[in-house]
Structure formats: C-alpha cells, structure tokens
Design a binder for these strands. Sequence first.
DNA 1: CGCCCTTTTGAGGAAGCTCAATTACAGTGG
DNA 2: CCACTGTAATTGAGCTTCCTCAAAAGGGCG
Lengths: 194, 194
Amino acid sequence: MASTLLLEGTICRYIDDRNGARQLVALHVPGDFVDLHGYPLKRLEHDVMALGPVRVAVWQHETLHRLTGERPDLTRMLWYATLLDAAMHRMWIFRVGRLGAEGRIAHFVAELHARLQAVGLAGDGSFALPLKQIDLADACGLTNVHVNRVLRSLREQDIMTWRSGEVTIHDPVRLRRIGEFDPAYLYIDADCPD
Amino acid sequence: MASTLLLEGTICRYIDDRNGARQLVALHVPGDFVDLHGYPLKRLEHDVMALGPVRVAVWQHETLHRLTGERPDLTRMLWYATLLDAAMHRMWIFRVGRLGAEGRIAHFVAELHARLQAVGLAGDGSFALPLKQIDLADACGLTNVHVNRVLRSLREQDIMTWRSGEVTIHDPVRLRRIGEFDPAYLYIDADCPD
DNA sequence: CGCCCTTTTGAGGAAGCTCAATTACAGTGG
DNA sequence: CCACTGTAATTGAGCTTCCTCAAAAGGGCG
C-alpha cells in the first residue's frame, strides 16, 4: 500500500453512479498529496485517474507509519494537508449546491487559478489545464452540452476563454464575482502546524 | 482555542453565499468530533450551528497538542476521524452534483439512518432528526418548496415519512435504490488505525 | 384568541437536460 | 498532399425539473 504525491501533471478523483454518470470530487495539481488519506483510511471509496501524463512520488504506507510514529510535527503537517483537501471538498459542495451553472464554472476556474498560482504554475491570467469540457461538466454537476453553452457565454462576455488544455482569464474581477469566489478556504498564506 | 465533541443533539456546518442562500456541508450526530479540523487548520472557513439543544465536550487545542505530541497512535485515530468527515463530504458532492431531488433526499436520509444506527440512536426504521424542511433543502441544494413536494411524493409512494423531528423509513430497499446509497464510504465496520 | 413559524399547495417561468445532428480538429495511412 | 477516422466541440429544438412568487393552512405558545 502506498500514497501518491503529484509532481507534474493533473490527477482527479471521482465517484461514478450506477448509470455511468461521473462526479469529480477533487482535482489535483503538482504538490498535492493525492491520496494521502488512503494511509489512515486503508481503503478508498472512490476512484483516481490521471488527466494526461503525470510524474509522481510514491510513499509507502510503512514509511509513513514509521515517520508518523517518530515525528509528531511531521504528522500534523500531513494531517493538515488532508484537511486542506477537506476544505476544498466543502467549497465544492457549496459550488455545486448553491451556484448556477455560470457561477460553478467561474468558481471552479478561479480556484484552480489560485492554486496553480500558489505553486508557480499560472501566469497572470492564463494557465494550462488538461480538462475536456466533459470533465468540467463532471466537476460541476452539469452536462457537457450545457457547459459548452456557458463557456461560450463567458467568452462572449470577455470574462474568460476555455480552450481544451488552456484557460485564459480576461476579467478576474468579474470572474470572482460571478463565482462568489473568496480564496480564504485555500489557506494559501496560512501557517502549517508547528 | 478548542474543538467540540458532540455528545447529544445535532450540529450542522454550513457556508452562506452573499445572497443569504445557505449550503450545509456537514451534519453531526452524537459521537462526532464536530470541528476537530479546527485544531490543525487554526481557523475555520465555514460556520457551525446547533440544531436544537446539545451537550458537548470541549477539547482545548493545547490538550490536543500535548496528546498528539506524545501519542502517535492517538494522533492517527484523530486524523482518521477527520478523514471520515472528508469521505462524507465527497459523497455529499456526489449527492448534490449527480442525483435528482428525490435521490438527494433519499441518499441523505439513508446516510443519517446508517450513522445513527451505528451509534445506537436509530431503531429499525425510524429516528429523531431535528431538521426543518428548509434545513433539508439547504443540505440538498434545493428549495424548501421543492423539498416539500418531494417529501409528499416519497410519503405517497410509501417509502418514507418525514415529520419535523421524526423520520420513518417504510421501505429501506427502495429508499437506498432511489438514493443509490452504498454505506461503504462510512467505514462503519472498518478498523481504526493502530 | 392572536401571533409566529412551518408546512402545504397553486401557477407560471427559467435553467438546464436530452436527443440529434453538424462542425472542427488532430492523427494516420495512402 | 489528401482522404479517412475518431474524438471533442458546437448548435438546435423540445422538454423536464426545479425555481419563484404568492397565498393558504396548520400548530405551538403566550
């Protein structure tokens, strides 16, 4: 048993329903410990998939067990990492539960922009993102058809452009307003434990 | 700073949007460590509210810090508890993102039944639940009006009855099927770490 | 009894879905 | 260089689900 630290590329986690409809529950960027929670939980109740080529570091659970046995400070940092994940889950619930289609997409893009910027992978207003429109639909609880229409609308309003593989934000202020995005939940400038 | 262990009653966590729309992101039953994640995170990015009277135990973060410094096994158990929470968040995303109104309510009720049963607070098919219809709406990303109609439909189909404060499940099999509910993500019979 | 909160019901409208067809585009082989 | 293929994006039309607004009906409690 092992857990995966993502070094390059993109990985998502998702739950499928019995009719094949897919719901993404997490999207990981370089620096994320994709399934660290698999160490205490022992088994995962969802699936993991790479979106394109990735480079990862693999941590054996034995190693993690030894480390957490010896280093309480390090344990708290690992714990903290999984809690950031949970905070993103919560905002994901809010996004899907309380925003309309345009807001969901705007919020999702704004979050990814903030996270990629935090690890130096996003320029001022544009970044690479290897998601197809259907992946975006599966993330936001929409259909690919509707996602397509909303993306067109956002493009026509000069707010953002989504080309498969590349996102450009033309008007970050309106994007954040439409998505009601406040990055506080990402704890980007917060201190880690210890 | 302190974290709260719920002993009796019900507590929810929620995020409000700027228009006052509310989205529940967690619902806690006795035995849950409501905001244990507040210890490593240091601050919470959402709100917490009791639904009716509660009895709680308060754990000072200093105490938790001392315990986690000395007892790696205990730390892993606490960590594990927060990861169960995250697993429920993930299923919550699925519920709101991929199920229709009837499915969301059925899934939500089925989860609560399973969790309350696990702590001995639910009989065979009925249990107390101090939620108003509007709380259920806020949990499921619906309006109170639509929740009311769906509840009537579920009642008329003899699947379940929701009276404010009391839920009765008449047909657990159909309830689970409608909600596509599989309790695996609750890790009810799983081993804790160590 | 009167008040407040919650539930219930009705009617009309908007958002997003389904089904279906068309277009764009990259890769592949001739 | 071009036809051929498969995947992804785009567009259209009609429909379902759920929302909004509004009002009525219960129900507990001072």
